[in-house]
Amino acid sequence: MAAGRLQGSARRLGWLAGLILPLALALGWEMAVALKWADGRLLPTPSRIYATLAGLAASGELLDHVLATLQRVGLGFVFGVAAGTVLGAVSGYWTAVRRLIDPTLQALRNIPSIAWVPMFILWFGIFETSKIILIAVGVFFPIYLALSGAILGVDRKLVEVGRIFGFSHREMITRILLPATLPAYVIALRSGLGLGWMFVVAAEFMGAEQGLGFLLVDGQQTGRPAVILASIVSFACLGKLTDWLLAAVSVRFLRWQDSFKPAE
């Protein structure tokens, strides 16, 4: 009884294990500076980063930056996912379409994100549009690649069941191919979201007046390492939080999986 309860709470609190490493690092650095083993000027201590964050939060500045960045990532993610899903599904399903678009997309995929920045500014201006498109481009590729590849890997035997029941192309895609590729798709969404967070920094480097990326540049230009680190810590927390949300939502749709359950 007691052992069972203990095991239950161990499972519930298991996620706390992930906090041990960052907390230990923070504490170690704090102590190293306090004991004068290291110089805290260029790498401010966690307490100073926390104070900077608290200050930014108190003035309402932090929330504005976070919201600006979240909005860009959110919109870029939505557009990137939509385009990646449609083109990935179509190119996975129809060989003719794949032959037509896949080589071009594979070539474009290898262009570093930063290389697009000058073109996007010329085409879409310096404001939100170019930023969101840049993020969407980053999100697009992992989704497109994973989905078109996963569709090609769907078990022919399940597809035949759809054929026996006279499925149309649309039914074949929505009722068999997309559900069958859902596990791969969720992983692609998560890596797409991660790329979205990376591309938002590049996007905000190109002349933003708000956002965590702007905060980063501002901290560099005004020589305030604590501000730079405050921005980096915010990125890390938001990135982890949104990824966790995505994973938590997807678990609901993947309950059917008969997959390996690691030992506790």
């Binding site: 035997k157 035949e160 559900p179």
Partner: peptide, 11 residues
């Protein structure tokens, strides 16, 4: 009916 059940695992 096939040799394997071929049920959709997600349904």
């Amino acid at each position: 009916v096939f040799q394997e059940p071929r049920l959709m695992p997600w349904l």
